[in-house]
Design a protein around this nucleic acid. Structure first.
Lengths: 222, 222
DNA sequence: CCTACCGATCGGTAGG
DNA sequence: CCTACCGATCGGTAGG
């Protein structure tokens, strides 16, 4: 994976020269090689503020410390970048949730705590990316959107299955398991909309409280 | 409310001529007077699909069956239209919620059902406008955004107060009333994101089920 | 003769 | 309240 093409330091140093229109909070240090991952990270930051259509490819490139031309080397289009961003974000969310479930054992309450905890934690730790995943689905062209929506449905079905299992075993008393699962998952998703780092509650406290409220919402032990 | 300004039929006929790029679902019939309200309604429709930055003033004007110039007669800017749209949407939401509370009496469970029912119903009946209220807050300039955020806080405090009252009276068993109130209100807001008219559940059923799940989430009767 | 990029600019369209 | 435009900037691509 080592490339001997050309030292990138000179190019980076040129771009980093002061007095230019670049914002001071460039996300890639001078000398770094601009990768697809760095471009996605930069796009997350700027799109979270102005949205997909409110962000130009030049905004994204500038935030990554590079040029639009490099963006078009790594992605077919601005659309392609958005599609990759949202698709990978959901892969991370689903993987984290399934991993938590694998570790949770058989107890339905532990399993609901696992999926709620994983879902909330991802939405707190990748807050901006999560916000974009919810607000910019409409900006995806139909093909890519269908793919992302399908992955969102996969995550919802994980919640559905955990709640249904708990009801079937008589541990949860929810009258309408799927509605309760939707109620819970959407409340967990919404933490990305109101959470502010440094606020009243930290991520661990939010996770712990949401796990217990979720158990109440499915009538755990009733 | 009758305006004698000018018969709009000829203009409407011109715009409605076939073979043009106009979508067939123009929201204002030829002959209607384009008002600020009609422009907002048209903007809600097109912005709900493409977002604020993805929608041009020409898109809005065309959906309202009028011209960009008329839009700038009724609003100072595209920003001004968005600010008016979101501000009035929250006024409607808060008014509906307070009216429901007034009718609810003293029982904490009835009061929670009232605010949940009103909040959910508004988000179902004004689905697109509600979606924009959540996704396009970031597109508002700081002054207007602060005003809208303050009104959103007013709505959240209504939920907070109802849950706290229920806990104080010993009717709700929530350990963390404000967190439960946030959990519930955000789940109710999210109905605008997943509801599809003609789907499994109608508005009345969703309202009824969400009222009961909300009561579970605050540990009603425990 | 390829890739990975550069500075510059394309054809159209944005808000006003 | 329309036609005709503006300054600028859009997403994307040219030659080298």
């Amino acid at each position: 994976m080592v490339s001997a093409e050309k030292p990138a330091a000179s190019s980076g140093a040129r771009r980093g020269s002061p007095g230019e229109g670049l914002p001071p909070t460039t996300l890639v240090l001078p000398g770094d090689e601009p990768t697809a991952a760095a471009l996605i990270a930069a796009a997350v930051e700027v799109m979270a503020v102005h949205g997909y259509h409110g962000t130009s490819v030049r905004d994204i490139a500038a935030a990554a410390g590079t040029s639009p031309a490099i963006l078009y080397h790594h992605f077919t289009s601005k659309q392609g970048l958005l599609a990759t961003m949202l698709d990978r974000g959901l892969d991370v969310l689903i993987a984290a949730t399934e991993e938590a479930l694998d570790l949770a054992g058989e107890d339905p309450a532990d399993r609901l705590r696992a999926v709620v905890g994983a879902h909330v934690r991802v939405h707190l730790e990748s807050q901006r990316e999560s916000l974009l995943g919810n607000s910019e689905l409409r900006s995806l062209e139909p093909g890519a959107r269908a793919l992302v929506v399908a992955k969102r449905d996969v995550q919802q079905r994980i919640f559905d299955r955990v709640v249904r299992d708990g009801v079937r075993r008589g541990v949860f008393g929810a009258d309408q398991p799927d509605d309760a699962a939707r109620f819970v998952s959407t409340a967990c998703t919404a933490v990305a909309a109101w959470y502010r780092p440094g606020g009243r509650l930290g991520p661990d406290e939010i996770v712990a409280r949401y796990e217990e409220i979720a158990l109440d919402a499915v009538r755990y032990g009733r």
